[in-house]
Amino acid sequence: MEQNTISLENKGLEMALSTKPPSLFVLFWRELKHDAFAFISLFVLIFVIVAVYAGAFFLTSTRDVMSNNLINQNQSPQDSGSLLGTDSNGRYVAPLLFVAARNSLNISFAVTGISFIIGLVVGVTSGFYGGKIDNTIMRIVDTWTMIPALMFIIAMISIADQRTVGLFILFLTMFTWMARTRLVRAAALQNCNMDYINASKTLGTRNSVIIFREMLPNLVDIVVANFVLSLAASIGMETGLSLLGFGLGMEVPSLGTMLQAALQPVNLQFRWWTWAPALILVVIIMLCINFVGNALQRVADPKQRYQ
């Protein structure tokens, strides 16, 4: 009997020690199963993204979506024979939508991605090393945050000789990296005070190993959640700027430039096909991103997780 108990205890210990905590994906899936909105959103989002990229790839390699054909301008779906009619330049709206959506998504991914990399690097450095380094870095971040982003972007775009996509991404990134840095730093600080880091330090593990192998994985949930949510913000910013005319150039369609048509009463009332598809797509994408992102956030915060 004693032997059995001990072996059972050993077994229990073994199991406890060998079971890893559930992975991010498992947690996420669990969360999704109980949140219908997020569940649907995820699939819709994946579908839209794949459709957009596939469609855009197929289209730009087989035809010239951007050619002006003024004779055909502003034809309704019935007249033009195409699903969504033509816009004021005579371009067919449907293929244009794919290309524009792809451009918008590309820009958002790029902006969010780059600002995240910067945020991770700077935030972890700041949080981990603390002290003077932390102070200096945070001073810089503070100063940069004080700059009125919108105004600077407008001013800089007015300067630029050429409005390339790269420049636009640069400008947007310049004003979004600060928030990421703050987030990562806060999470890093929290973690650094925890025992497991201190234990590793006492053991003498190299700093880089601590950072990469122990701390980063714990930051992942927060980072991923924020990444997804800030995608939506990037899309919103790009759309807003393009709408105002401070976005991309003439030859680069984006959801924002397509929405410009809505600024004119004639289009708003009589030519829904020039702007409504873009609007619906923007809303769908952003809604889905938000639902999914919120689910991810709940995963990252154990208190809000579905138990």
């Binding site: 596939a54 699903l83 449907a94 293929p95």
Partner: peptide
Amino acid sequence: SIFIAACAA
């Protein structure tokens, strides 16, 4: 998606 793109254009 390719099907839709083809129909729409």
